[in-house]
């Protein structure tokens, strides 16, 4: 009798624990107050376009009931913005975007922020890597003259990119140099705070080539002010970039695609992650997002939290090898 009671009690407890456990697993926590997206770069670059795109679709498709604001915090290859949201650990109303720079920053040994300090929520897109030149530049004004300059006069190249040394855009150009057998360390480069600033420097002739996301320069390419000489994609991308050849077409064996996603501050709970993961999963299926992605030249590639964490882990090793191979890391 007594043991029966005990057993019932025990079973009851089990059921309660089970239900609670289930609830923890299933119930998503909702953000309270304004959602603040902090952009890890200045206005006009790829991160900026992505973050503002996210905001537009979150609001227009009513994916969140809250007010959403965006703010630029350029610097440190993103580290300044990530540090800014990490001042609010565990607060799911703060979001930022991430790109391979989050790995290279930490691999190169200066940045105080690693991806494990943050909470990566989802991977959203990957970029079309473009090699932009100024059509008025006397030395480099086409894919052909770029390759020629790489081989003959690498010291005369002025490479500019956003937004940290040794990051994905540096790797993108280094991979091109490597493909034609030139050491990237011979090529002078300058780092700018955002893709927008790189674009301006290229327009003004202060740099003569840039590895950059196509979406950042597409309008200028169309207007003929800048020339996207070639792209590191598998196939031609169509749209505004339909007339841009791939490196493969030009006989250079090179493909490269930096990924981008969204992250929150460190210490988010499973429920908080789930809420955002669900929202972003919905976001990528919305026609508004698909239309925007086409306009901004993003390739939609959704990965949830777990997959993103796994991807970041394997990509970190991959970037380590690449950086070593390119001579950017000892």
């Amino acid at each position: 009798m007594f043991s029966n009671m005990l057993r019932t009690c025990f079973a009851g407890l089990l059921v309660i624990t089970g239900i609670t456990a289930l609830q923890i697993d299933a119930v998503a926590e909702e953000p309270k107050g304004t959602i603040k997206i902090i952009i890890p770069a200045g206005p006009g670059g790829a991160n900026d376009l992505l973050a503002r795109g996210i905001k537009d679709v979150l609001v227009s498709e009513k994916l969140v009931p809250n007010t959403v604001t965006v703010k630029n915090r350029p610097g440190g290859g993103g580290a300044v913005a990530w540090a800014a949201i990490n001042r609010h650990k565990g607060d799911m109303t703060y979001l930022s975007t991430f790109m391979p720079g989050i790995l290279t920053n930490d691999l190169l040994g200066a940045s105080p922020i690693k991806y494990t300090d943050m909470t990566p929520i989802a991977t959203l897109v990957f970029d079309n890597a473009c090699y932009a030149v100024n059509p008025k530049d006397p030395l480099i004004n086409s894919a052909k003259s770029l390759l020629k300059a790489l081989k003959n006069t690498p010291e005369k190249i002025r490479l500019g990119f956003a937004n940290a040394a040794g990051n994905h855009w540096h790797v993108a150009f280094a991979s091109l140099a490597d493909a034609v057998g030139v050491d990237i360390r011979k090529i002078p480069y300058t780092v700018f705070g955002s893709g927008g600033k790189v674009r301006t420097a290229l327009l003004g002739g202060h740099i003569n080539v840039s590895s950059i996301a196509f979406g950042v320069v597409s309008k200028f390419h169309e207007a003929g002010k800048l020339l996207c000489s070639a792209m590191a994609t598998e196939k031609r991308i169509g749209g505004r970039g339909a007339n841009v050849p791939t490196w493969k077409e030009l006989g250079v064996n090179l493909t490269y695609a930096p990924w981008r996603g969204v992250l929150g501050p460190g210490n988010l709970t499973a429920g908080q992650i789930k809420y955002w993961e669900d929202r972003f999963r919905q976001l990528t299926t919305k026609p508004a997002w698909i239309k925007l992605a086409k306009r901004k030249s993003w390739n939609i590639n959704f990965l949830g939290h777990k997959e993103t964490m796994a991807m970041l882990k394997s990509e970190r090793e991959l970037y380590k090898t690449t950086l070593k191979k390119l001579g950017l890391l000892k």
Binding site: G75, G76, A79, A110, A165, G193
Partner: peptide, 10 residues
């Protein structure tokens, strides 16, 4: 003070 904008050193 803060993260260096150029090299991301703290």
């Amino acid at each position: 003070i803060g993260i260096d904008l150029q090299s991301s050193s703290a």
